[in-house]
Design a protein around this nucleic acid. Structure first.
Lengths: 336, 336
DNA sequence: TTGAAAGCGCTAACAC
DNA sequence: GTGTTAGCGCTTTCAA
């Protein structure tokens, strides 16, 4: 139970604990002699100041929080989600802070973990995914003057919400350009209608595609429903392109905006001769892609970088630095 | 900055803050009348006691830690690693504690995060993977009397180390039995020699296989190097089984003890007619397995359960409960 | 049943 | 430069 306190160090060094405190905090106005003496004693006894007590006095916790929703099996099952965490964690520890994970969870007192953490100042700042930044949570953060950064572009109709996100427009451009370089000319994009309307990142990827195709004077063809692909297949069989709503020439590439869409397509692949002639492309790399039955082109999204940037931004805000950018968009590149 | 304290609540209720404290802690010896009054005021002002200050007084932190190594890309890239976290987190929050993630990280003062957290009592208890429980860390935990639970079977030559792990012997049994039920009789297992000697979980899986085969009076064939499989292939071509060291009849199933081994095998698959006739099997499910070129049988390992059990065990230890089991082995079943 | 006061380990204003 | 003292928000003796 070796629980050595500042007082004991002070006694051992024959000084007042305030003096020890000054040494700890590298305060000025300390004689070289006593500083060295105190430091020696501290080292000898392996003394580390209790950060809880320190936090109480400083009104700080030296802790950064991350809010997540562990009932969201989709996020938790997604390895990329953790890439972000990894990036955050690295920065947090480099800044001598601790990292508190808090999941959405209502405890017995019927106040949420999030609310508790924020109102109790259990953390000095926190990172929150855009999907969890509700109006209510936003109000709480503002009310308690808690520094925060959002991962994913802010969707809340509020000004000045700091966020970090992948540049999805650029990702769409890069992927499309890559396919064009490979020789593809009739590039389709699978971007479900409702989903695009709901999720801005999908609209952005679509936008990147559209811009690039236009710039290269190629025809745009957006597929909103996988059913159209079946039709496409029939059209090919009969040598016609009727009812496809896309350009008459045969498509040679298909961009899927999400993994789910890609899987949907891959599920069809077996026994579908048309798809096997198509260059498939999507966003994000994923494990085992090389073992898939169909090779897939993709842009490599650096989510670890996203985590790092978010954490860096948070520390800037916590330190009340000036010139902190309102938002950061991270560029992507073709993977592998 | 609404930062309401116990004193303000006391003033508002016209009582001493000690009385408020007693209400908070459901202490006995409180008149129903004042309790209700105080509770009303607390509710009205949305008061939540500051757990930092509370911790200082109680000498507790209401926080549970998890130690990991974020430089271990293998763990961080493994979605199953996070299943464990998810399980832990659920239990931790159900017990009204916070969850602190700490990565192996040496900070500027050249003392590790782990050491800081333990010696400062930043957490009331912690969960640590067996791979990170070094002699040094163990000593630290003992010295500071810090409750802990190890995930994965304890490998340190110490008594009384509490751990939770998957029952790998049973997993090996279940998988082998499954293949037998499918009609396989000549089941090989790929278990690399050095790896088996190093990692007990591999030896356990092998043991489960061996026992089951023996019980069913089937011949055991352990492959230590993937090269043997190439030989096997040749043997098949020439109709002989020379130099394979395994039973003369043709193998109809292959158990891979790890994903890495499985992938190694799958890498060969293209153009290898022999492998395509083999039932492949491994441990752990993994995402996208259905999109792989070769169907794979597997046991479903419930790592979320493992996390839950570990956390539960930790709380038992923290609460100094009696009859806490020394270790827990979790059973598995065939997946899908 | 309640209040007053000391203390958890540390920092910070104010003296000297 | 260094010591003294009060205080961070809460709990817990000890009296009343």
């Amino acid at each position: 139970m070796s629980k050595i306190t500042i007082q004991q160090i002070a006694d051992l060094a024959g000084v007042n604990k305030a003096t020890v405190s000054r040494v700890i905090n590298r305060s000025a106005n300390i004689s070289e002699k006593t500083r060295e003496k105190v430091e020696a004693i501290m080292k000898e006894h392996n003394y580390v100041p209790n950060s809880i007590a320190r936090g109480l006095a400083f009104n700080k916790t030296f802790t950064v929080g991350f809010y997540s929703d562990y009932t969201d099996k989709r996020a938790y099952a997604n390895p990329f989600f953790y890439k972000v965490l990894q990036g955050i964690e690295e920065i947090v520890y480099n800044n001598d802070h601790m990292f508190l994970m808090m999941s959405d969870h209502v405890n017995k007192k019927s106040s949420s973990t999030f609310e508790n953490v924020v109102s109790q100042h259990r953390v000095d700042g926190l990172i929150i995914p855009n999907t969890l930044l509700t109006e209510q949570n936003y109000d709480l953060l503002i009310k308690h003057n808690m520094p925060y950064v959002v991962t994913g572009e802010n969707m809340l109709p509020k000004e000045g919400v700091p966020w970090v996100d992948i540049d999805n427009v650029q990702a769409g451009q890069v992927l499309t350009e890559h396919l064009i370089e490979l020789g593809c000319r009739n590039i389709m994009i699978y971007a479900g209608g409702e989903a695009v309307a709901r999720d801005k990142f999908l609209a952005d990827r679509l936008k990147g595609y559209t811009e690039t195709m236009k710039r290269n004077q190629l025809d745009i063809s957006v597929i909103e429903h996988a059913d159209v692909l079946k039709t496409l297949n029939l059209a090919k069989k009969s040598g016609k392109s009727e009812r496809t709503g896309i350009t008459g020439t045969r498509p040679d590439a298909l961009i899927c905006c999400t993994h789910e869409q890609l899987f949907e397509i891959l599920d069809w692949e077996r026994g579908n001769p048309m798809l096997s002639e198509l260059a498939l492309a999507t966003f994000d790399n994923f494990p085992m892609s090389k073992y898939m039955t169909h090779p897939v082109h993709f842009v490599d999204i650096d989510l670890e970088m996203m985590g790092k940037q978010a954490a860096q931004m948070l520390f800037s805000l916590m330190n009340k630095e000036t010139d902190v950018p309102k938002s950061i968009s991270i560029h992507t590149r073709i993977g592998n």
